[in-house]
Amino acid sequence: MQATESMRAIEPKGGLGVAIAATVRRDLILMLRRRSEVLNPLVFFALVITLFPLGISPDPELLASIAPGLLWVAALLATLLSLDSLFRADFDDGCLEQLLLAPQPLPAMVLAKVAVHWLLTGLPLALMAPVLGLMLALPAGSYLMLALSLALGSASLSLIGAIGAALTVGLSRGGVLLSLLVLPLYIPVLIFGAGAVQAAILGDGGAAHLAILGALLATALMLAPWAIAAALRISING
């Protein structure tokens, strides 16, 4: 308590903004130094998409009909794969404890970390998806919707996934548990994300779906940071 008081006293002007900017910059630098961790989900995404034509059939018509769902499920699994490392390194070297002790509100700091995660996982996945869509013979006219829906939806995925990652970061074998916790909560995003691409293929646009994805994101933005912060406190204080 005493420490918090004295730290608040020396807090610089615009403390929260400075702290968030510093967290974002630090996380970005750290992640960009461990390039394999950024690239792994992308390679995984491409690999999974390669498996489907081999496992099902190379028939373009069949592939085109299932492409929206395949791309979305593969992107979702790639996000899931990257979640475990979201807090892991910071937990191991004690940085998370520092974050908890900082005078700035934890939900805001956590939001900065999740934003970096989305920037380096969700956004690249969304940019890469149209290329893979080409390989799956995704009908023309739905490529932009695919990228947009993935960019919007993966932000929700990062936020929801971070709750699971925060709950399991203290556990030595949290990986399988993490997918059990997170995947059921991903279902609405999957339904409306794949639905948006499906709607674009059918020609009725996908604006309604994007709006719902946006609503889901707004809800997640409102509630998830608090849940992540509470979960981190549980994981660290034991």
């Binding site: 709750i163 609405p188 509630l223 979960a231």
Partner: peptide
Amino acid sequence: SGSRAASVLAMVGVVNIPIIKYS
């Protein structure tokens, strides 16, 4: 810790149940 973690997850789950149901 287990109790508190399960509590957080139960709360997150109950917020999501109507969303999942409607979707």
